Amino acid sequence: MTLALIAGQGALPQAVVSEIGDRHWKAFHLKGFEPDDKTSEPFRVEHLGSFIAGLTAQGITDVCFAGAIGRPKLDPTAIDAATLPLVPRMMQALQAGDDAALRLVLSLFEEAGLNVVAAQDVAPSLLRVPTVGAPSDRDYADIERAKMVHAALSNMDVGQGCVVARGQVLAIEAMPGTQWMLASLTHFDAKPDGGVFFKAAKAGQDRRIDMATIGPETVDQAAAVGLNGITVVQDAVLVLQPDVVRTRLEKTGLFLTALPA
């Protein structure tokens, strides 16, 4: 079997590559969203039909999406013949919520006979959570509050994370992502002491794509804005560079806990 890695931005594609091993694979990226490692081949969204057909023609059987990809702009003048029949569904996807759009993208690949596999299936170590420290009673109360907020919002396809401090909801992750959300906390004139960053998959989310992710930078940002720790749900969040995450947690004094799935 041959794997096509659709590489987005950030550290996730390289984490997947490090565990592919001897399996035959090729990397591609959507033009406009080049990965940090530029060794992949570009394709245009306007040529998506041709791109998918080309994958099957090359004998590729499996596809793995890894890394951040934004919503591309569609140039009607650049659409090729193989992609033209897909345009109505593509336009519908671009106007839908994140999960709905991703599900449609997956269906286009699957309809061509390609098997979409999750990043954590290719690189199982991504699910290893390096738990460090322990929350206080106050932190546990904030975690419970964050779980409630996340559950209420996940059905609305809003985001994968939130920040709660002393019972107050300080931030909710939306399209700009985790880094933007945590950075927004620097604008508080009087933020409550401590707080917890909670992250998990959305309700009904297809975990083959767009899995929630944390990494060393997440720890650094959480520490920089004065949070006490991070809580994730086991098997619902990918951890980049877990050994480095552990080191950063020990250095900053933040805790990291994993709730059962």
Rank of each mutant, 00 (worst) to 15 (best):
A200E: 15
N228L: 02
M211R: 10
Q205D: 05
D193F: 08
V232R: 02
G229I: 03
D220Y: 00
A212S: 09
V232L: 12
F188K: 11
D220H: 04
G215A: 11
Q221N: 09
F198V: 11
Q234C: 07
Q221D: 13
V219A: 05
P192R: 12
N228Q: 08
G204K: 02
D220W: 01
A203R: 12
K202S: 11
A212M: 07
K191W: 09
G204S: 10
G204H: 10
A224W: 09
G204I: 10
K199D: 01
Q221E: 12
I230W: 00
D189T: 15
D210M: 08
A203N: 11
V232C: 06
V233Q: 13
M211L: 15
F197N: 00
K202G: 13
V233D: 02
L227R: 04
F198L: 11
F188N: 11
Q234M: 07
P192K: 12
G194Q: 06
G226L: 04
G204T: 11
F197E: 00
F197I: 05
D206H: 02
V196T: 14
F197P: 02
K202L: 10
K191Y: 13
F198T: 05
N228H: 15
Q234V: 05
R208V: 03
D193V: 13
G226D: 01
I209A: 07
A190H: 15
Q221L: 15
N228T: 13
A222K: 03
N228W: 03
A224Y: 04
E217V: 06
G226R: 00
K191T: 11
K202D: 01
V232H: 07
V196I: 15
V219L: 06
G215P: 11
D193N: 14
D210A: 15
P216F: 03
Q234I: 00
M211K: 08
T213N: 10
D193H: 10
A212V: 01
V225A: 04
I214T: 07
A222I: 06
A224H: 07
Q221C: 00
G226P: 02
E217F: 05
P192L: 11
R207D: 03
N228G: 14
R208M: 08
A223K: 10
M211W: 06
A190Y: 06
A222F: 06
V219P: 01
A190K: 15
G204Y: 04
K199T: 14
D189N: 14
V196H: 06
G215H: 08
V232Y: 07
V225L: 04
R208T: 04
G215F: 13
G194C: 05
A201K: 02
V196K: 07
V196A: 12
V219K: 04
G229Y: 09
L227K: 02
G194K: 01
Q205F: 05
Q234W: 08
V233Y: 09
D206K: 05
I214W: 01
D210H: 05
G204Q: 03
T213P: 03
M211Y: 09
A203D: 05
H187Y: 14
A200T: 15
V219H: 02
A201W: 02
G215M: 09
Q234H: 14
T231N: 00
E217W: 04
F188H: 15
G215L: 08
D206N: 09
T218F: 01
P216T: 13
T213A: 14
R207M: 14
D193Y: 05
A212E: 01
F188E: 13
F198H: 05
Q205K: 14
I230K: 00
F198C: 10
